[in-house]
């Protein structure tokens, strides 16, 4: 098949815009990014099937029909994206409800380890041998002759 350049450009822009939003910290923006990329993927799948008349038998000759299989795939993808969009929106709302914003926070525990790394320390919950160890080589204890 020969690629359709309009599709190629649309895919590129939808992915590009979507990805740049995806990398944001605001969940709403991330969500919009997801929606845009989702559309981009759909066009990408569409491009994998032939262009033509609607694939409905009896309304047009079979030879010139568009490929129905990518369409079914896209339909599945569209509907799944709908469900996920709803879920992400609920997540954004809940985040706002709890925190007053819908920014994605960094992980606290990871941040703690990053700080340990910056201070050149070792994990705090670990055992060191510093306390109450028998020191195997005793240098204390005077030699007998000294007594």
């Amino acid at each position: 098949m020969s690629p359709n350049l309009v599709y190629v450009v649309v895919i590129g822009v939808l992915f590009g815009a979507g990805v740049s939003l995806l990398l944001e910290r605001t969940l709403t923006r991330v969500l919009i990014g997801v929606v845009l990329i989702g559309n981009g993927v759909n066009v990408l799948i569409l491009m994998g099937g032939a262009y033509g008349t609607p694939p409905i038998i009896g309304e047009a000759p079979v030879e010139g029909m568009s490929d129905p299989l990518p369409q079914a795939m896209i339909l599945t993808a569209i509907v799944i994206t709908l469900g996920i969009t709803a879920f992400l929106l609920a997540l954004a709302y809940r985040s706002w409800q709890l925190l007053g914003h819908d920014e994605v926070q960094d992980d606290a525990e990871d941040t703690r380890i990053i700080e340990l790394a910056e201070r050149d320390e070792i994990p705090h919950a670990k055992e060191s041998e510093t306390e109450d160890l028998p020191s195997p080589v005793y240098d204390a204890g005077p030699g007998w002759a000294e007594r």
Binding site: L22, G38, V41, L44, I45, P70
Partner: peptide, 16 residues
Amino acid sequence: LLSSVIFLSALGLVYA
């Protein structure tokens, strides 16, 4: 979601 997008794109490419 990103992994799903990549998978789905790959599927589109595979079918294409």
